[in-house]
Design a protein around this nucleic acid. Structure first.
Lengths: 144, 144
DNA sequence: TTCCTTGCAAACGATTTGCATTGGA
DNA sequence: TCCAATGCAAATCGTTTGCAAGGAA
């Protein structure tokens, strides 16, 4: 966990901002939680030390510094998680009923197949491909 | 356009709701606009006949009836477009610089490959897969 | 009549911001 | 010291809703 903290510190420093206790708590909570979480969910974990408005500010700073990545869910709420340089490349399974999001890590073969698809499909669009987002929609156990 | 209207009428009827003038205007504006549009953008087109709150209600009814599909953008705003039964199944190429969105229609083979990937990746998640969203990120000609 | 629909204004809820205060390098 | 960071309350803004009036079957 110290190495995570150190890496976070460096990324923040590169942006000219500090790694404060509140930000440390936020990153740690998120690391503990595994997967995308809303500000409210994170706040439940750090409420005693970080008020909601400060949490939002931390999340914003951390996302700018590429420590976290943010995704806007279909329920209109933003979910945060550790960026891929830490968690590894992955995709999301989203429950269209309750909004729950679960990480799915593709095998090398799957990712290769996906990259090939991406290249093929973008072929004559004039775009330079820089990445992809793949989201599997479904209904989770609880909602079925 | 009459066939679109008829199909819309049927879908609404199946939900026990009416195809009113406001809803007709909304669908037509969207058909004219090609691609995902926000409520505000649609409202600009129909402001003289449909107040914003009614527009939101129409969009909700139309989405429930599967006449439209809604997507939550990375700016937290909902964008609506004609559902795929009308536009055909497709994915989006998004320019991460200017936000431009281009439709990409996969070939049968590509879509098959994608479906296989989806099934594989969702395998032991406990989710019942209902669909997928695939977004290719890149830089468009203009922004390069 | 019986529902569905509409318009307006007010309510909501997640997120953001102004401002005065605190704290770390 | 100096400027970023914090805490609180108030403001934003897209979206939703209550309610009374209007409309189609």
């Amino acid at each position: 966990m110290q190495q995570l903290e150190q890496a976070v510190g460096q990324r923040l420093a590169a942006d000219g901002v500090r790694l404060t206790q509140g930000r440390r708590d936020t990153v740690e909570a998120l690391a503990r939680m595994h997967g995308p979480r809303t500000a409210a969910e994170i706040h439940d974990e750090v409420a005693s030390t970080v008020p909601l408005s400060s949490l939002y500010r931390s999340l914003s700073v951390l996302t700018d510094a590429n420590v976290l990545s943010a995704q806007h869910g279909s329920d209109g709420v933003i979910r945060f998680e550790l960026a891929e340089w830490f968690t590894g490349h992955h995709h999301h399974l989203v429950c269209t009923s309750c909004g729950t999001v679960v990480d799915v890590t593709p095998t090398i073969g799957q990712e290769k197949a996906m990259d090939d698809l991406v290249e093929e499909m973008a072929q004559d669009s004039g775009f330079t491909v820089t990445g992809h987002r793949f989201e599997i929609e479904g209904t989770c156990k609880k909602c079925r």
